[in-house]
Amino acid sequence: MGINTYILLTILGCGLVTWLSRVIPFILVKNFVLPTNLIKLLSFVPVAIMTALVIQNILIFKIGSWPSVNWLNFGAAIPTIISAFISKSLLIIVIIGIISMALLRFIL
């Protein structure tokens, strides 16, 4: 499928809403003083959002039924977590994760 007006408009529209979501908070925070409680709330965003991103990859979601476990990702996550405890190095954690998944796929 070559590029046409439909595709181009879609990309521009999606690009615009994504860019605004990324940039407007920076402009607002720079120009206004945030209430202390909001700053406190935001300080939990990193841990909360990273947890949600990890869980979304470990479970399989389907509206109408309880989430089930993605056993392959779960299996690869265990050595990855252990390597995190031991190494405390992001590079090692990612490499162990990749190797664990490759091995699991090879074995299963």
Binding site: V54, N57, T80, A84, F85, K88, I93, V94, I96, G97
Partner: peptide, 13 residues
């Protein structure tokens, strides 16, 4: 799985 491993690592760190 690299991206999942990365978020596990970033969360732990």
């Amino acid at each position: 799985f690299a991206v999942v491993a990365m978020f596990i690592g970033l969360l732990y760190l």
